[in-house]
Computed example of a mutant assay.
Amino acid sequence: MKRYLFLLVVGLLFFNFGNSQAYYFPERNSNWATKVEASNSFNQIALEEAVRFAKDNEYSGSRDLRIAILKGFEREPFHKILGPTKKRGGPAGMILKNGYLVTSWGDTKRVDMTFSVTKSFLSTMAGLAEDQGLIKDIDDRVGDYIWDGTFDGEHNSKITWEHLLQQNSAWSGELWGGKDWADRPPREGGVHDWKFERPKEPGTVMEYNDVRVNVLAYSLTHVWRKPMPIVLKEHIMDKIGASTTWRWHGYNHAWTEIDGIKMKSVTGGGHSGAGLFISAEDMARFGMLFLNDGKWKEDQLISKEWIQKAIKPSKPNVNYGYMWWLNKKGNRHWEGLSENIYYAAGFGGNFIVIDQENDLVVVTRWLEPNKIAEFMGLVNDAID
């Protein structure tokens, strides 16, 4: 009888922790819980080495992000700061196992710019729009929804929502003073070559381009008839218990009018300022939502079907989905790590990494960007 009870208890403990769906979801304004089983999943010495690596390899750019931005994008013609910036803190991060805090470093409550991590939040706004029927199909042409001239013309009229999400739309034009050809131009050729180059066929070539991402943000604002920060707050951040400290900014002059109401159209990045300003802890909550296939506790906030589409490799770039980077075998593959890992990444070394095979969410901030693969290798090696 005693043996039976012992096996029953062991079995229940295994089910509660070993079951990948038995995740912990922190309440708002609560201290993040730890669990012995989560900590015991790691070799503590190796884990400390990973954290030390993150601390020792701080992003080399200035902590005054206005300076770092202007230096980082000095090649771009006409580049200037158009939206808010903020001086940053030092390295910070969190590692979660089954939702429980295994370790953290730095100030995880500090609100900092997050640059292109914003894109993964923006793509989720498109997912919510499709889930709720505001967009019938992600393969629809955007011009069927936005008829104000943004998608007029032989070229732009071909662009679908998926093209914008995968950054292979080759949208041609100007938005908020930003010209598509001047954003992250190729290193070869002169400015006049870039300016007059014929746009590529939509869906054929990925080009990382914030002007086109901002076109997506503008288009979604009109589809939702609401500013994106309100959509994010109501449908995601409030429901996952995020703090009230995060902010999503647009350029100072990026206003549009919908239903007679003046609304700010936000950016999907921060390389001209603006974007999502957020803490590591709120980033970790967002990561937990995706680790659990769009479900927070028992509430399905974003459909699993959308997430599967969002992390499917695009044809032009096997390492990119719907504004999530994918650890497939390509130019950005992290050797020795699961090909099912996907992550949000931003300028200056901001990352939210989702590793479902190991039930991990890893957030790291202000890590030298070219060190992320090595850092994740150390985290993986620490799994006991």
Rank of each mutant, 00 (worst) to 15 (best):
E154S: 15
T267F: 01
A280K: 03
G173L: 03
A126L: 14
N350D: 06
S169R: 13
A280M: 07
K80C: 05
V362A: 14
F351D: 07
R212T: 15
G346M: 03
F25G: 01
S20Q: 08
F351K: 15
G190V: 00
G268P: 04
H192R: 11
A50H: 02
S116C: 06
S219P: 11
K328F: 03
V223L: 10
N19P: 05
W325T: 02
Y251S: 00
E335G: 13
R365I: 14
A382T: 10
F351Q: 10
Q44K: 10
H249S: 10
Y218V: 11
R110N: 01
V9S: 04
G189K: 07
R198I: 13
M228K: 04
Y145N: 01
D137K: 04
K239G: 01
K97T: 07
T103D: 09
L134R: 12
P26D: 12
N214K: 06
V266L: 12
Q166E: 15
G377C: 09
G83A: 04
W246D: 08
F14P: 00
L128F: 02
K200C: 08
L47R: 05
R28Q: 15
W194D: 02
F196T: 07
L220K: 05
K35F: 02
S157M: 05
N358R: 14
S272H: 07
D64L: 05
M1W: 15
W161M: 03
L216K: 12
F151S: 06
Y4F: 15
S172R: 11
H192V: 05
I146E: 09
I341Y: 06
K97C: 12
N380I: 03
K262Y: 10
H163C: 09
F78C: 00
G336C: 08
K226A: 15
D359T: 06
M206D: 13
H253Y: 10
L165H: 11
T204R: 06
A254G: 03
H249P: 01
K233L: 09
D148C: 10
V353W: 08
S39A: 06
Y4I: 14
V379E: 06
N43Q: 09
G273Q: 04
T267G: 03
D64T: 08
M288D: 13
M94W: 05
I81H: 07
K109L: 11
G189H: 02
S39C: 12
L5T: 04
D282N: 10
L8H: 08
A68Y: 00
D180M: 05
L301W: 13
W324Y: 13
L47G: 04
G18M: 02
E58L: 02
W105T: 05
I261P: 06
G177M: 09
N19L: 01
L134H: 14
L82Q: 11
H249G: 10
L8G: 08
I45Y: 13
S120E: 02
M125A: 11
V215A: 11
Q300W: 03
N214E: 13
E154D: 14
F121G: 03
F375P: 01
L96W: 01
D359H: 05
P369A: 00
E74Y: 02
